[in-house]
Nucleic acid binder design. Structure first.
Lengths: 348, 348
DNA sequence: TAGCGGCGCTAAAGCGCTTTAGTCCGCGCC
DNA sequence: GGCGCGGACTAAAGCGCTTTAGCGCCGCTA
């Protein structure tokens, strides 16, 4: 409501300098908490900032100071299939919540393959658009970490294998989680266990399969893994393949919530009752698995928190604070619901 | 590999000017397709650009030229519930696909309420972080359009009521879509129809309810709308309330795919068979509704395309091209699946 | 043949901030 | 009493781009 003097122009640092009767340099120093400004002057400056409603122009700051206050996330997925799983949205929510607390923006891009993803990183690095990027879905022999180091773009990986690499990572221990799930099924007496796995080139998918087979060997389970991508068709086909085996599994583990739901549909069509005839567990938990009937046993992990942890790590990294090579994410916990039960044919 | 001369610094416009033997101004003009540069010089400059691998520094460009090449999206939702519905991710995918084709970035933020959303807009406007914003979930007497105009931040709305307002909108005609759905149910002989509606303060939710009741009046249907937010609990409660009515509905319409799934679970628990005992239709279509058993009849609309349309409109707007007050989105079509059938008690 | 307009190009300023290199002043010290 | 020093602050340059003003030249007209 009514500002004196200048036309309707955003106040700049020069305006607040004039208003406080100091030089622009002093204002910049005061705003950035640098020494060389007396307490009195500093408060006077901050008062002027508040009074005029000044906000930094990010472009100018980025040009002068070298920080874009923006973090990027490139998701490599067929664009139209994105969003069926709640995982992404949850992760993005968490990332964004932590970043925006520090007034850092999150920039999002969806591409079709890893090479396009690398192109985006190159472009962002060249344009100095982002201070760093979060990398998902690490693959075996993934070129991205090295490339990112080469182009000098700070990055944080989600997962990987928990060993130090060229860039820091946040490690969600899928191996441990899958082990818990295997132990749950073994405790219920299951021996023949099917596993509808994810995309096998992903490190985390591979680790899950390995964990299940390791635990199986230890606990005397007979594990059969059938890979499937994220589509319902493949998941349904994989489920049917498992049902068609000579030694039909008495329990099936799905790598994701959506896959589990798709699987349950196939089981229902086959006239199988849960958990009377067959048990089902999902590796990912979400609202969705509670929509199944009965609701599904799942490994629960707070994806939102995971996003926040990634963001915190990223913020430390771009600020040049020390960051551990591997940050451990909170462990998943087993949430038993109605879809897993005693193996059929055994008295309760 | 090995670049002569300078240390490992990104090439600037000055570098390519030197390389092409012209002034920086000429380079800028050539890059921006402005007249006053001969074809020969222009190609020479572009060759230098390609050779040196130059990319514009977005910060510098934004500072000089006033364009951030970034569009913002603020989603007002409880952060942890975001992502259960595929709608958002699909919309974001579409938005982003169109924007990134023009090398414009999408910036994303999730906030808890509209007042926080307005704060973000104010901040973004002050920081000149975004060229414009996309606004979702318009409410009755929504303060956002006027405020955005006031702060001079270009914006495009999704939906609204299809009438011109202070800012351009992309209009997805929920009224027409809901009418089609009502006609489908009427044709199957249903009279008592339940409706589990969304958040009634949203303009689009209200329009859907109105459409259903209008069509009901015309077609002789008895419509009962029960509002429910996006939670499973409310949806389940609303479904039970409908089932408990004296005149139990023979068909239920859900405002979203996830709500429909939650409803189907309740119906299954009540021992009702689809579509033998009761028909179910979802207003939103997605992969998820095919996970139900039987798959659900739904109004299908390409949310990805809708995102692209929003993005195109936004791009035109920030470029100062003429934009219609209301852009019509493609109409939804009815996708009949197994969940809707003849009203019970009527011979097929 | 002088005048004029347009084309192709350049010099220089400016966007809003950060940072470097001072300047100035008061104080303690030998 | 001169010197050095550190604290408080400023002038000015610079970040990489866009834009405005303007210059020189050529061809055309009167």
């Amino acid at each position: 409501m009514s500002s004196a003097g200048h036309p309707n122009r955003r106040p700049t640092i020069a305006d607040i300098a004039a208003h406080a009767g100091v030089s622009p340099t002093a204002v910049s120093f005061a705003l950035n908490d640098r020494p060389g400004i007396s307490a009195r002057t500093r408060t006077r400056i901050l008062a002027a900032v508040a009074e005029l409603g000044w906000r930094p122009n990010v472009a100018a700051r980025a040009l002068g100071g070298r920080r874009a206050d923006t973090v990027g996330l490139v998701v490599t997925r067929p664009a139209r299939t994105l969003g069926v799983e709640p995982f992404f949205a949850q992760l993005v929510s968490g990332l964004q919540a932590r970043l925006s607390a520090d007034l850092v923006a999150l920039q999002l891009l969806v591409v079709e393959d890893v090479s396009a993803e690398l192109d985006v990183y190159r472009r962002w690095a060249a344009e100095q658009r982002t201070d760093g990027v979060v990398v998902l879905d690490l693959e075996r022999d993934d070129p991205r970490p090295e490339e990112l180091v080469r182009m000098g773009l700070p990055a944080v990986l989600l997962s990987g294998d928990g060993t130090p690499g060229p860039v820091p990572s946040v490690f969600a221990d899928d191996h441990a989680a899958m082990t818990l799930l295997a132990e749950h099924l073994a405790a219920l007496g299951h021996v023949h266990v099917g596993h509808v796995g994810g995309v096998h080139t992903y490190v985390h998918s591979a680790r899950r399969a390995t964990a299940l087979h390791d635990a199986g060997a230890r606990l005397g389970l007979d594990i059969t893994t059938v890979p499937a991508d994220f589509s319902q068709d493949e998941t349904a086909a994989a489920t049917r393949a498992l049902l068609a085996r000579d030694e039909r599994p008495t329990a099936i583990v799905y790598d994701s919530d959506v896959a589990a739901l798709a699987g349950v549909t196939v089981l229902a069509e086959a006239g199988l009752d849960l958990p009377g005839d067959i048990s089902v567990a999902s590796f990912d938990d979400s609202e969705l698995v509670r929509l199944a009937h009965p609701p599904l046993t799942a490994m629960t992990r707070d994806t939102f928190d995971l996003g926040e942890l990634l963001a915190s790590t990223m913020l430390s990294l771009v600020r040049g604070e020390p960051v551990p090579d591997v940050v451990d994410a909170p462990a998943s916990v087993l949430t038993v619901r109605g879809s897993t039960g005693q193996v059929p044919g055994v008295a309760a």
